[in-house]
Amino acid sequence: MTAPSRPAPAATVTEPPWVRGLLLAVALLFLLLFLVVPLAAVFYEAFRKGAGVYLAAITDPYALEAIRLTLFAAACAVPLNMLFGVVAAWAIAKFEFRGKSVLVTLIDLPFAVSPVIAGLLFVLLFGAQGWFGPWLKAQDIKVIFAVPGIVLATVFVTVPFVARELIPLMQAQGSEQEEAALVLGAGGWVTFWRITLPNIKWGLLYGVVLCTARALGEFGAVSVVSGHVRGLTNTLPLHVEILYNEYQFAAAFACASLLTLFALVILAIKTLIERRTARQRRPSSGETA
């Protein structure tokens, strides 16, 4: 986010023009090389063999099946982690208790764990040689190399997103408005829906958007638990990998371009939310005026 309200620094306290030019050139060149060129390359490679190949690649039954599975995993993971985020943020932001900072750190844990290890955890639990492997086999339930494993891995890697957005937001807002509602006779549930939720809705949406992006794009964790069975346990990122490894580059990039388009939409929504909340913050910043 930028700070457009800040007046341009006076000439005495900024760098000489050539330094400014140099810094700007270095920054833009770096971003061009690492962000813009790859972005362009995705679409260039996707359409290199023509629109026909592109369309065929993204309407391929296996591709459609992969899209469906990806959306399904996200549709499981996002609502679960949204609920978790709200619940955890309420406990952490509104109450004082021992072990609070430990809990906050634990919520961040999945960010620190390599996605491959996240996948491994579930293989160790539910795989053929895992803790529950024999029991699951006896019940004829498949978790690893099946859809439940993919959902679990996706849930694991996206646990922190919503909670991380909401905790600082709700801590900053404090509890005065909730207390005011209680004094006026509102119950706990009414207070949450009518006071807390409207106050955190943008932060919540922001967290959900980031969570969705990660859920749709997760590769490492899902790759470990998936088994790569086409049409059954293949998510879209995994499908991209298979096509690429089979040297079907145009098809791989066609599917990749779908994911990229989605990433761009996420960025756009994210930017809109940031602008919106920045605008909201400005008038209320004059609290004491």
């Binding site: 794009g217 990122p237 990749a256 990229t260 994210k270």
Partner: peptide, 9 residues
Amino acid sequence: LPFALPTAV
């Protein structure tokens, strides 16, 4: 962008 773009892509 790197946060939003799947790593495989």
